[in-house]
């Protein structure tokens, strides 16, 4: 398997920023020749993470800042650090991301709350820190494992 040097991607938060960042990120992973399933895992986890930043860390488009994804490929997968300078996570910690129950009446079916569940289900070692005015979320994706 190709050795992928560490890299970083920074994009200014906006409605279309997540698509742009995902496109750049997956392009940078091309040397790893990920399977469809592995690429899907990466895209889903990052999409949910970045959607949260656009929606909650930079809720005011007029004050939108940048988010950065740093990626290091190691033997046990991709180590990611996602940072932004927006609002802090409300409780200073990541949501538990419990599975939303779908065994309910039609009208009560959930239309949201899946994001953190998907992140916690698909990513390993998810950890959040607020350092000064920066949100730092680190995680490992067990893809391209050597």
């Amino acid at each position: 398997m190709a050795n992928l040097p560490p890299f970083e991607i920074s994009v200014k938060s906006s409605d279309m920023a997540v698509r742009k960042a995902l496109g750049q990120f997956l392009h940078a992973l091309q040397p790893l020749e990920l399977s469809v399933e592995e690429a899907g895992t990466v895209e889903l986890v990052l999409a949910e993470t970045l959607n949260n930043i656009v929606e909650h860390a930079y809720p005011d488009p007029a004050k939108a800042g940048y988010f950065t994804i740093a990626c290091a490929h190691q033997k046990d997968g991709l180590h990611l650090q996602v940072t932004d300078q927006g609002l802090a996570m409300p409780d200073g910690t990541t949501p538990m991301g419990q599975r939303v129950s779908v065994d309910v009446e039609l009208g009560d079916l959930p239309e949201g709350g899946f994001g953190w569940f998907l992140i916690q289900d698909l990513a390993k070692d998810v950890s959040y820190q607020r350092v000064g005015s920066e949100n730092q979320l680190t995680m490992r994706l067990a893809v391209a494992v050597q």
Binding site: A47, E48, G107, E111, G112, F114, G115
Partner: peptide, 20 residues
């Protein structure tokens, strides 16, 4: 090729709006 949780929520909402 891709949906995220917002897309999933929108599909669920579309189904709910059809009614029982």
């Amino acid at each position: 090729q891709f949906i995220d949780s917002s897309g999933l929520g929108a599909i669920v909402a579309a189904m709910k709006s059809l009614g029982a």
